[in-house]
Design a protein around this nucleic acid. Sequence first.
DNA 1: AACGTTATTATGTACCTACTTTTTTTGTCA
DNA 2: TGACAAAAAAAGTAGGTACATAATAACGTT
Lengths: 233, 233
Amino acid sequence: MSTTNRLSWTYVRDEIHKSILAGRYGPGDRLPRDADIAEDLNCARSTVQRAMQDLSDSGLVERRRKGGTRVRAEPVTRATLDIPITRREVEQKGGRYGHQVIRRSQAQSPLSVMATFELTEPHEMLRIEALHLSDGAPYILEDRWVSLTTVPDIQNVDLTQQSANEWLVLHCPYTRCDLRFYAISADEDVADLLQTSIGTALFVIERTTWIGVAPITTVKAITRPGYQLLTQS
Amino acid sequence: MSTTNRLSWTYVRDEIHKSILAGRYGPGDRLPRDADIAEDLNCARSTVQRAMQDLSDSGLVERRRKGGTRVRAEPVTRATLDIPITRREVEQKGGRYGHQVIRRSQAQSPLSVMATFELTEPHEMLRIEALHLSDGAPYILEDRWVSLTTVPDIQNVDLTQQSANEWLVLHCPYTRCDLRFYAISADEDVADLLQTSIGTALFVIERTTWIGVAPITTVKAITRPGYQLLTQS
DNA sequence: AACGTTATTATGTACCTACTTTTTTTGTCA
DNA sequence: TGACAAAAAAAGTAGGTACATAATAACGTT
């Protein structure tokens, strides 16, 4: 016997998952305590704990101290999204990346931007409208506000060389990030820049980041017609 | 002195995070080994390991055996999405939920559906077109295919009482889920059902689930005008 | 130099023990 | 009965040890 008897936590996780799938425990049902499962499967409690942690943050199960572990009564579909730097996204799809700065201005943040950042006082901000290109064709149109209070360094960066998107992601880690997805119809300006017709349905990604409570940047990224966002499989 | 000297793994995580934020380690840089950090901060290696695991699956850091830990060279914006049952989503927003089955049919899966499921052989499937309502107004229009091979039980369910969305989520846990987001323009049928005008930009969520390699269901959920999907904050 | 083999190294995992924290249950007293 | 306090229960965390695994580095042979 060369195989050790040690159970991996992934095995334990899958066993528990299977017994839920098999209907042994239905939505809302309580599972045995970690210690009992451990004894049952003949492994350490910490191994069960590790397995349960995984099931818990994949949304299948809910755990509470003293309350024990229960199968989520109202399950959710939980998915993880990875949004790469736009340059990298284009290149990964085999395109040649390029980008253009369309407009650049500096102003106090308007009310809409203050609201997005949950600010009470206006901040001095840099506004950059830019177009990302794939093989020379429009790919993503972004309208971005950057707080000059939080990120003063961006004023000394040549944003025609490196996009604000890339510079910020590389130089400015965040502690909070809100995302918002929806659809819009292209108006005249947008249609013109994305080289499509007025009224085309476009997918929009809005992203806002903070470091602590200090605002970093908010972007509205309007994607080209036909763009799709996928969960990483 | 009542405070113990024990450091929590969240504290350790935040310390490491802070030192990256402060620029002590830039993108691509290698961090000290866990054991050294542990000695540095005067805690156990397992505590550092726990902290690192968290930083790793939040996408800030990459870890490889023998290679050590490095700050991700090309960071990604990683976010977690929770998509609840539609009934629950409507109710949580304070709406009165309702739903209608528009069409129901049974057929062999067409090529497009086979492709979505990565199938080589057609499956017998149930197709259900349904409309979710909030306060009587259209909310989400869904076009769903369910494999009768994998989920034969659904034939005995009264889908006018409980939506297929809800029944499946409650009775049919999955092991794989792919999501896809994009925008479409409303055609005549869709505009009619969602009570909007032709050409309106609409946000679409496509979801496909499997159990093992067996297909469960694929849905195209067309949301009402103005619908937004947010990351859970 | 070019290769295959072996050693080294840092993370990953499993187990155990002891203690902490949160939440529920129970019990007591007004 | 009701409110508040005490006890109990189960998950969570920290520490420590030993070993497994994977990736890299070092080495020797051709």
